[in-house]
Design a protein around this nucleic acid. Structure first.
Lengths: 337, 337
DNA sequence: CGGCGCTATGTTACCGATAACATAACAGCC
DNA sequence: GGCTGTTATGTTATCGGTAACATAGCGCCG
């Protein structure tokens, strides 16, 4: 932290000060054991005195390893992916990589732009929360030879790899839980458009189990605008208007479920006696000291960590045993069902 | 999307195919109006045919503009900063920049590491959620000549710029709200360690108003481990044990407030009749169709957007009118007070 | 008609690192 | 004592772009 005449200190300046060549400085940073201890210390001292920070972009250009992983996330708001991004960033950091983030707001056009922008950084890997892409996006990614990990679902034919769980099975599991609790006239509340994809899969699994049970009916609704809680409230209102005898609702997210809870309360209904309400995600507010909401817990942070590790492994030459990693989910029964 | 013999297409290859020199391709990308339309189209065609994606790292190395902005965030989980990061990323994207993200988990040692790692990318700007830093971190940043924006608080002496609001004033405003609602024996529930800093400021403002009112008492407690909701629940329990006549609690976050609500309910207390509960943040679950929680709304997305714009402006040579931007806050009175 | 100012394009020299190969010094071995 | 292998360090070329300075062609003006 010293001389720096305005700009950045370069490796050459460090080398000069330490009385060695650039490459020796490079070795001290990347493979210290190839340098004699005495030299190493001299170089380290020069680095400290000058406050040298190596330029990773230059290094990456030469070594063809950017040490950057890109994450293309629909949105961080709404609790869903935040913990996954935390997990991802954490694991990457531990391995000397950095995380580049882009949001798509559930638009595949924006996903295409984000992917193109990220490819410009020649990332060592790419993580996508969406599992449906524009054709050209998919082709570009396949041609890029960069490890791509799709998360939060297990696509039949992943671009590269996939880490997540089966949304369909999760919906089915919740159906079984509600059946076991004696419910028979059940509705699903989702959101239209956008996040649709995964929600749709949850619904499919849910509906299938109910139909096959032969004893229960399924109803479904989705609200398209407003906050998630507002949609949940309107969703429950719509369900009860059309099917007043509904005795359970499964919401595609905990936030929707909270909206439904507030609507139920507003109507003077008792949960779970009059109606059972279940959510999805096990967000913090759903927990024991929060709403006490029955929900499906998904391994958010683990998904991020496993996705990161997968990328690191592939780049280290270790071909993983499977292209798809199923981290499962868990139905958490609490007070609302 | 075509020939690509395994690696990446370079600008030179595009140039050759279009029958021009590299620099002309570069101009088509960066300043298209300096190139004759006919040439421009030929180059664009070549770019499309070859599926060329310019290497931003190489470009940045040469132009000394990385088009990267770094954000050092304590954590994404917990709703607090997610919307800010969304806003930040959005504004950056619109201006051709990308967002590099690092988490610190509220540790200033990890902040120091993250800052060092980011500086290695020569970012065009840096955004920090923390406003307390290790001395060396601060010095490094000051020496770097990179625009630094501290957010979610208005430090007296910012490193570079600051965008946020006064946590102290926010605490004070909530105190006035509760006083006006007739409450007199109030407690503050915060979290120890970590996030402490901003929570402490909220408490200071809260306590000051109450003391100066001459009619109200203040109590404070903080829980140090467990989930936020669990801390809120334990916080309320601790408060009521020690000061059973407490008639209002102000929690340092909505999540804590939810924990307190659940504890109140568990004890058979009616909110707000027996006890008023207020939170901070106006997370989605606190809203009208959620908990209906009285809280303080802060402009999360705006903070991100304004911080991004500030960095873009400074890099464009526009010195902003002030180093500090106060975006304010708003007390939202709902059903719990 | 020579010179000026445009417009359109090209040439050269980097930016700051690393890979790959080269070299020097020295120890160990037959 | 010469050969080989190992350790420690250096030299050169290159990664893929962009800045800065050329250059060429052309219209226009006095």
């Amino acid at each position: 932290m010293a001389i720096e005449t305005g700009g950045w200190v370069t490796m050459g300046e460090v080398a000069e000060r330490a009385g060695v060549s650039k490459i020796t400085v490079s070795r001290v940073l990347r493979s210290p054991d190839k340098v004699k201890q005495e030299t190493r210390e001299r170089v380290r001292a020069a680095i400290a005195e000058l406050g040298y920070v190596p330029d990773e972009a230059a290094g990456g250009l030469s070594s063809r390893r950017s040490r950057i992983v890109g994450a293309v996330i629909s949105t961080l708001a709404g609790s869903t992916f935040a913990s996954t991004v935390d997990g991802l960033g954490d694991r990457l950091r531990q391995n000397g990589h950095q995380l580049l983030l882009a949001g798509t707001d559930y638009s595949s056009a924006r996903e295409a732009d984000a992917v193109a922008a990220m490819l410009g950084r020649r990332p060592d890997g790419l993580v996508l929360t969406s599992t449906t892409h524009r054709d050209d996006t998919r082709r570009t990614l396949e041609a890029s030879r960069i490890p791509v990990v799709e998360i939060w679902e297990l696509p039949v034919d992943p671009i590269g790899y996939a880490v997540g769980f089966s949304n369909r099975d999760a919906g089915a599991a919740m159906a079984r839980h509600l059946l076991a609790a004696g419910r028979r006239r059940m509705a699903f509340i989702g959101t239209a458009g956008e996040d649709d994809r995964r929600g749709r899969l949850r619904y499919d699994g849910f509906a299938e189990v109910l139909e096959q049970s032969g004893v229960a009916e399924v109803r479904a609704t989705a609200a398209a605008s407003g906050t998630q809680t507002a949609r949940g409230a309107r969703g429950l209102a719509a369900v009860l208007e059309r099917w007043p005898d509904t005795d359970a609702v499964f919401c595609s997210s905990d936030t929707l479920a909270l909206g439904a809870l507030s609507e139920a309360r507003r109507r003077g209904l008792t949960v779970p006696e009059d109606i059972a309400i279940a959510g999805f995600g096990d967000f913090e507010f759903a927990g024991e000291f929060g709403l006490g909401l029955t929900t499906v817990r998904v391994p958010g942070p683990d998904i991020g960590e496993v996705a990161a590790q997968l990328i690191l492994d592939v780049n280290a030459g270790l071909e993983p045993p499977s292209r798809t990693v199923d981290l499962g989910f868990q139905v958490i029964a609490r007070a609302t069902t």
